[in-house]
């Protein structure tokens, strides 16, 4: 177990470095500098700006400076918001995004796993078909389509919930964005859970458990649930990535001041360092989460630990 952890941990390092390098050199390879988009500036001002942002140094040195900064938690200055550093913007936006994302993940897991298990236990019956059709719909409708429809129904027509904004961050404001963000993931997790549960229920060791005379709920909860949930555990990494991606549009639609919204604004304003910083930050988050998921998987599956 210890060796396995160390191995996984060492594996995450290169991934992160490759990500940072890729993003950084892509930015530098892009035609035109960060100050091209705005109205032209005099060469002197330009040189000053470039010196201030260390753009006059050799590329590798810039990269080294950037990585060194990252290690200290410094993502550099924002080009578009001169009064802010990227670190400050992340510190401001991320807690908001995290709150919505965490609720959405919780909802997706609870609802998705429950629906998947119910469908598997009613395999090939009406309830199964219904749940799976709903799940397919959930997967097929992008959350930027679901979100406006939710607003139209619950905010405009029924007037039950606010149609946008973050307010005080209370549940009333979070409800619609969280649901819109979670729905495709609920659908995906439900399908995943059903598939693996059906497979597990067919396996010989479940027959053994039934042959022992165990009650049905013990068979499902004690013998089938854990192996059936392993694929869901593996999916937690990709799910996080999907939620982060989704949060970008959801925050845009609901006007929530999260990191995703900053990211889109940065992308549209060609705020290079902000975009780069957010990509690196989220990339690191995903890599670390994948690592945690791998370790969690090893804890759950006794056969992995010893290999």
């Amino acid at each position: 177990m210890f060796r396995y952890s160390v191995k996984r941990f060492l594996g995450a390092g290169p991934t992160l470095l490759i990500l940072v390098a890729l993003a950084f050199f892509l930015m530098r390879a892009a035609p035109g500098g960060p100050f091209d988009a705005e109205r032209p500036v005099s060469p002197a001002v330009r040189a000053n700006l470039e010196r201030a942002y260390h753009l006059d140094e050799p590329l590798l040195q810039q990269f080294g400076r950037y990585v060194a900064g990252l290690v200290r938690g410094d993502f550099g200055p924002s080009f578009q918001y001169p009064d802010y550093t990227v670190t400050e913007l992340i510190r401001e936006g991320f807690p908001v995004s995290l709150r919505i994302g965490a609720f959405a993940m919780l909802l997706a897991l609870l609802a998705g796993v429950t629906a998947g298990i119910l469908a598997a236990l009613r395999q090939n019956r009406a309830a199964d078909a219904g749940i799976m059709a709903a799940a397919m719909t959930g997967i097929s409708i992008p959350n930027f389509v679901i979100a406006p429809l939710l607003i139209l129904l619950f905010a405009v027509h029924l007037d039950w919930l606010p149609g946008g904004g973050y307010g005080d961050g209370s549940l009333r404001y979070l409800m619609l964005p969280v649901v819109a963000l979670a729905l495709p993931q609920i659908a995906y997790i439900a399908r995943l859970t059903r598939g693996s549960m059906v497979e597990v229920l067919r396996s010989p060791f479940i027959r053994t458990a039934r042959a022992k005379g165990l009650p049905a709920h013990t068979v499902v909860l004690r013998h089938a649930l854990k192996p059936a949930l392993l694929p869901v555990v593996s999916y937690l990494g990709p799910a996080t990535a999907a939620l982060i991606t989704g949060s970008v549009v959801i925050e845009q639609i609901f006007g929530i001041p999260g990191l995703g919204r900053f990211f889109v604004q940065g992308a549209l304003n060609r705020d290079y360092t902000l975009v780069l910083g957010v990509v690196v930050f989220y990339g690191a988050l995903i890599v670390v989460l994948n690592l945690i998921v791998d370790l969690l998987y090893a804890v759950l599956d006794p056969r992995v630990r010893y290999t």
Binding site: F205, D301, P302
Partner: peptide, 19 residues
């Protein structure tokens, strides 16, 4: 099941719960 009549299965590799 188990108490009156019990079963020993064919394949002991897959008939025990690996988890």
């Amino acid at each position: 099941r188990g108490a009156g009549m019990a079963l020993v299965f064919q394949d002991p590799m897959t008939s025990l719960n690996p988890y």
